[in-house]
Simulated scan of single mutants.
Amino acid sequence: MTDRDNSIDAEVMDIMKRYPRLFRTGSSTKSRGPMHDGFLCDPGWYPLLDRLFGDIDAICREDDLTGIKVSQVKQKLGGLRVYVQGGNDRVNDRIRQAEAEAAATCEGCGGSSPGIRSIGGYVTNVCDPCLNKRKKELLDR
């Protein structure tokens, strides 16, 4: 995963702004809550997350869910983790589908991934080219 500073990636901010019912974008960049840093994963998963949040937004409208909030999005032990407050079974099922899709998707570039790998003790889910790129970045440090 890339190093993060105190600002949210522009692409992440665009996704968050598309789904205001799920993200409290007015305070997300100022508060120190879990969403303060945006999505704690690399950009290969951003399109998958955009589709997920679009589907969750539609579920909220269909099921009249109010008060739903995405509390955290991150990569943990090579897998995607999405945590929400105020969802229902349909939302949880859709999150599980996205997490399964991410297991076969490179976190770095969004292509196919053979699965979870370890790079210098860091567990990630990347394809061969992204793995080689990350190894090189580690050696260059």
Rank of each mutant, 00 (worst) to 15 (best):
M1Y: 12
D63L: 10
C41V: 04
C130G: 08
G111K: 07
D5V: 03
R32Q: 09
L139I: 11
I116Q: 14
M35V: 04
D57Y: 00
G78K: 05
E137H: 13
V84M: 05
R117V: 13
D63H: 15
E62Y: 13
V73L: 03
T25K: 00
P20T: 03
D37C: 06
G38M: 08
E101T: 15
G79K: 15
S113C: 06
L139V: 13
L49Y: 09
D64F: 03
D5P: 01
A58L: 07
M35H: 04
G79A: 14
R141G: 12
A98H: 06
R21N: 14
L80C: 10
V70W: 01
W45S: 04
K30R: 15
N88K: 09
R96E: 00
P43T: 03
S118I: 09
M16W: 00
V123K: 13
K133D: 14
C106G: 02
D140N: 13
G110C: 10
I95L: 01
C60N: 14
Q75H: 15
G26D: 11
C130S: 08
F39G: 12
L65E: 13
A104H: 15
K17M: 08
K136T: 09
V126C: 06
C106S: 04
M16P: 00
P34D: 06
I116T: 14
C109Y: 00
D14V: 09
G87A: 10
P47T: 05
R21K: 14
A102K: 11
T25P: 01
Q85I: 08
A103F: 06
G26F: 07
R32A: 10
K74V: 08
I119M: 07
